[in-house]
Every structure is written in C-alpha cells, then in structure tokens.
Nucleic acid binder design. Structure first.
Lengths: 250, 250
DNA sequence: AGTAAACATTCGGCTCTGCCGAAGACTTCT
DNA sequence: AGAAGTCTTCGGCAGAGCCGAATGTTTACT
C-alpha cells in the first residue's frame, strides 16, 4: 500500500475515464480537459487503440466493447451473482418493481445486476453503477453485517455524504439503525438516496456469516405504503435466503 | 496508424487481459504467464489498483466492476442498442429461443445484448463476446451490407478461420452468399460456428443504408426445420425493421 | 515446533522510454 | 485563398520505469 505507482498507467486510465464519462473524445478536447499536452494525449490514444480497448473513427475516440467483455466475465465468476440466478427476475415479476443485486467494492455499493418489473420506475441504474454504502437500503444491509471497526473505517475514509435531506449523516444514528437492521433481517430507506423512492433490501450471507451482497427492491413512495413494505420485505428476504442456500452449490 | 506505442500501457492491459481471462491472479503467477519480472508485475498491479480498475484481496488480484460500468455506459450511447429497446425481449418470448443484438467492431462481430427465451439453449454468449464475421449468420448479415472492398480488407486481415466443418473458408463462396443474403434480407447459418446450431439473422440499416448491427435468433437444429426457419426469419426481419425506424428517433 | 521453500514486497542505481515543444500535414472555416 | 484550428510526426533530453537482489512474510512439509 505504498505510493508506488506508474504515471503511464495512471494517465492511460484517466483518459479511459474521461472517454467513459462523456462518450466522445477528440485529441485536443481530451488534452484540454485532462490538462495534458496534445501530443502526449495523442500518443496514449494510439497506445490504447492498439490494445483494443479504445477505437477511433473519424478522429473520434471511444471505448470499445472490451470493457463490457471484461466486466461480464468477472461477473460470471462472482459467486453471489451465480447463486442469485433467476431470483431477481422472479421478484421483479412478483412485485412489478425495480430489482437489483448489489455488492460492496472499495468502500462503495455497486450494482451487479438489474431486473425491471413491469411497473418499474426508470432509475438510472445499470450494472457497475456505484453509490455510498450509508445512503441506501442495500448499503445499510451490507454494513449491518460487517464488523463495527470495518464500518468505522469506511466512514472515516468516505464520510457520510448527504444525498438528500433524509440521508443519514450522523454516525450514531447510523450505528443504531444497523443494529436494528441486523436484528430484523432487512433494511429500508425512504428517500435517503433519491427523494420519493423507497428501497427494501435483504442481505445475502455465506455459511461463515460473511456478507456477500444484498438484494434490493425499489419503488415510488406513493405505491409502497406500510403494508406493502412488509409484503416486499418478506419477498426479498425469501429470495436472499434461497440465494444463500445456492451459494453452497456454485 | 504508425507503430507508435507505449510500453507501460501495453503491459498494463496485457495484465488486465490476463486477469479477465482466468479471473485469478497472484503476482508471481501472472509474472510467469506474461514472462515479466515479478517486481515489475507487482508495480503494475499496484498502479492498476490505485486506478480503481483492479482490486486485491488476500494477494489475489482481480478486475473490478469498473469494467462493467464503462462498458454499460458505452452501450447506452450506442444508437442501435437504444433503438432495439424491447424488441429482443419480444422475440425471445415469441420464439422461445436465444436472441442477440450484434455489431461490428475492429473486424469482428460482437454481442451487445442477449435475451434468452424460455427454451433457449445455454450458449456461452454474453455482452462483449466476439466471433469472426464470416462464421455466423449475424456476421454474414453485416458483411452483406458492407462495400465489397471493405469485406475484402477484413478477409485479408482476419482470414477465414474454420470454426466447424461447415464454416465458409472460401472467399468466392462467401461473396456468393453475401449477394443472396443482401437480396433476401436475412442470413442463415447451420452449424457454421457451433455444430448443431442454427442461427437466423437480419441486418439493421440506417437511413443512409449504412449497416449498424444485426439481430439474431439461435436454436438447436433439431428444433428448427425448414418451415420454422422461415417463420423465425419473418420475426427477425420485422424486429430489425422496427429497430431501423426507431433509429431516427433516438 | 522448526525448517525450508515459495511467494510478496521494498530498494536503488542504471537505462531506456515516455515526454512534449516545435514543425509539418491536414481540415475546416471565413 | 488565406487563416485558424486540429492532428500527426520528429527527436533530443530528463526522469520514469525497470528489474536484480535483499528483506519480509506466508505456506508447506518434516
């Protein structure tokens, strides 16, 4: 964990990040945005093209489907993804809402799979999308099953960023909630990440009680009252349970 | 297009490729496989970790979900992907088979989206998966709508690799088929890429008649006889047509 | 437990590579 | 046609990456 790095690698991926950010990318445009000399950016782009991770058409550079490929390959090796199999689709059909599978990675909560039910609201949710752990139901479900000092580390490094007026920003409040979540077996958030959205999420644990991910259902507040919330909680917990069992056979 | 490159970038992505290939990755293991000094590989991995594209847990290095993210972002900007919207799902439901959307990239045929119908055989098909253009129905559908000299260039660079006994390996035979495909509006292959598989594919063209991609249905030969084949051809062509129209509004 | 073997990580001095200014080719405006 | 902007090539220099060897750490075997 020393500061050992490699400028070229860093720069190459900064360029990739920039391309991913706003799809486009002409040489001088990138050079300006990244504050690098034009000829340098040009060199890097040449190199990236020759790796196959970037293409150029009419001087317009863009990332290729290699990223999709690498991403999907990794996902297929993710045990919790294999274990969840058709559960997401089943829940989506049963609840009609927006269903996701999420895992923790680098102190963040990352969507691994998305399944939209027939009534799903159009969230900006796609595999790979990230969010803070403290600011949504799945993240809280995950934190609730981590050792306390690990949670504290994450808070130290990432802070408790406010995403809406209802986001939990007080560590004490958070820890209190995590306690309750771990007891009741599922987490809820009401507009803590996106105003007007309710999310209900259950954790997936392995045999050693290590947290492996969370299954989450999201829908608009207007549609999800107290009663419906408990109904969904049941469904999500059941799916998490099935996944948990599957984990042993993947 | 000169040989200008950057060793560090090249090496970094060779490491990523290796990680993607077989998920695993300890330092010395990679060093051996890539024929690089251990300390060098170690340095690169450190650099890659600091970019966020690679993680390490217990000395085991792996690619992160960043790749998924970058891939999906790019896909969302791909016009033909947006235009196809729910068509794939509809075809999958209607035919019960394995349905894909593919595009050309760097002389290859790449899967962009997959939708499995209820009876779909389990192909090793995921977004980002690549195949030669000449060896399957979608690739042929795409080639059929490219200028002849472009096709010839691709053959020159890539050759006509034999994937099964039935793969087309003679340029003359290929050109003859492309002619017929372009006339009849769809392409078929019977075990040319995977023995025992039949694929039926229709091209998606834009207003300028430029080829943008292909929609493809795959199923086992046993289930797809002459009559069924024509039925599916109808369905695929209809979907391609809808997509084509949508292209103007995305 | 103790020892050995395998592996990961740090260090540092040498070399070669990435660096970028400037010039030259294109392209796109006015 | 000229001008302004952009892309690409070139080349000499500085410092970044390189990797052998030493050190620390884990694993495996006796």
């Amino acid at each position: 964990m020393t500061g050992t790095s490699n400028r070229s690698v860093e720069r190459a991926f900064r360029i990739v990040d920039e391309l991913a950010e706003n799809g486009s990318g002409r040489v001088s445009e990138l050079a300006e945005r990244l504050d690098m000399p034009v000829s340098t950016v040009h060199n890097y782009l040449q190199a990236l093209v020759s790796t196959g991770y970037v293409t150029v058409e009419d001087k317009e550079y863009a990332t290729t489907t290699r990223f999709l490929e690498v991403g999907h390959r990794q996902r297929h090796r993710l045990e919790v993804f294999k274990a969840v199999s058709d559960e997401l689709q089943d829940i989506a059909a049963e609840t009609g809402e927006h269903v996701t599978l999420l895992v923790e990675e680098n102190d963040q909560c990352v969507i691994v799979a998305v399944q939209e039910g027939p009534d799903a609201v159009n969230l900006f949710a796609y595999p790979g999308a990230r969010m803070p752990l403290h600011a949504a139901a799945p993240g809280k479900a995950i934190l609730a099953h981590m050792p306390d000092d690990r949670v504290r580390e994450i808070i130290d490094r990432q802070g408790l960023v406010e995403m809406t007026k209802r986001t939990i920003t007080d560590p004490d409040v958070l820890f209190e909630q995590l306690e309750r979540i771990s007891e009741q077996g599922y987490a809820v958030d009401e507009g803590e990440r996106i105003a007007g959205m309710v999310c209900i999420s259950a954790p997936v644990l392995d045999k050693g009680d290590r947290i492996r991910g969370a299954i989450c259902v999201c829908g608009p507040q207007s549609r999800i009252d107290e009663a419906r919330r408990e109904e969904i909680a049941e469904i999500v917990q059941r799916a998490a349970n099935v996944t948990q069992v599957n984990l042993d056979y993947v």
